[in-house]
Amino acid sequence: AADPSATGAAVAALAALPREALAHDLKGALAPLARGAPPFEVVIHRRFNPESITAYNIVPGLLGVILSMTLVMMTALSVTREIERGTMESLLATPVEPLEVMVGKLAPYVLVGLVQTALILILAATLFDVPMGGGWLGLSAGVGLFIVGSLALGFLISTVARSQLQAMQMSIFYMLPSILLSGFMFPFRGMPDWAQALGQVIPVTHFLRVVRGALLKGQAFPDMWRELAALLAFVLVVTALAMARYRRTLD
């Protein structure tokens, strides 16, 4: 019951089982309605969120959405702004390598992402009483990978966009699937197969599982290694693409 919206339909189906499951087998006086009581009883024990408090599911998910919105867009706009203002020409005249440029541009935003993460977790615990179940090692690794991956994606967008308007449009194009297909707004397993396939490619999907698993379930590092491996693969692929797309000239 970590996700109340996902378990609502399942709980409703279980509640209907006692009167409907044996309706074709129990006839006449044995019919459940005729006896006034169902032939068996289903007792549901909710784990992790027994009161079905929606904030326990929504607030941790906001961490991934907010980091994506700010880090991807800020990085894409900051690099594209330098191209528009002409300051990128001075940078290209220096003997720095693409990886050095990327590290120099992204390092300040890593600190911004860490401050945002700490602030959101503090507000989640103080204002919404979100349980902090533990799993801090895996959560720290997930936050670090997600921040670096989001910044690398913003840098990749800046290598493609020719203006700040294009960079913003590309960032929004990435944000919409991140919100709709990651399991943040809708239960992931309730989506069509094609939507789940697309959602598996989006890093926010795996990051939400890491955050919710750590805070609500207290999952340890071995319990979330698949999601961390997916985030690491995203970082490596996007970084490689950004390095390949990095232009040494403005033409």
Results as ranks from 00 to 15, higher is better:
223 D>E: 15
2 A>W: 10
126 T>I: 10
205 T>V: 06
116 Q>V: 11
172 I>H: 12
126 T>Q: 08
226 R>N: 11
95 P>H: 07
75 T>D: 00
81 R>T: 11
122 I>L: 15
220 A>N: 12
174 Y>R: 07
148 V>H: 03
53 I>Q: 14
180 L>M: 15
169 Q>E: 15
248 R>A: 03
38 P>W: 01
8 G>F: 03
140 S>D: 00
194 W>G: 12
39 P>M: 07
122 I>R: 09
232 L>P: 03
186 F>W: 10
217 K>E: 15
59 V>K: 07
219 Q>A: 06
56 Y>V: 07
182 S>D: 09
58 I>F: 14
223 D>G: 05
191 M>G: 05
89 E>S: 06
125 A>G: 14
141 A>H: 03
113 G>H: 01
40 F>K: 12
176 L>I: 15
165 L>R: 15
196 Q>N: 13
247 R>E: 07
228 L>N: 10
204 V>R: 02
24 H>W: 11
25 D>P: 02
106 L>H: 00
4 P>A: 10
167 A>D: 10
248 R>S: 06
247 R>Y: 01
230 A>C: 14
69 M>N: 13
86 G>D: 11
111 L>K: 04
243 M>T: 06
50 P>H: 13
199 G>L: 10
98 P>H: 06
21 A>W: 08
107 A>G: 00
60 P>W: 02
213 G>P: 02
38 P>N: 11
245 R>I: 05
156 L>D: 03
70 T>G: 02
181 L>D: 07
47 R>C: 09
198 L>C: 15
23 A>V: 11
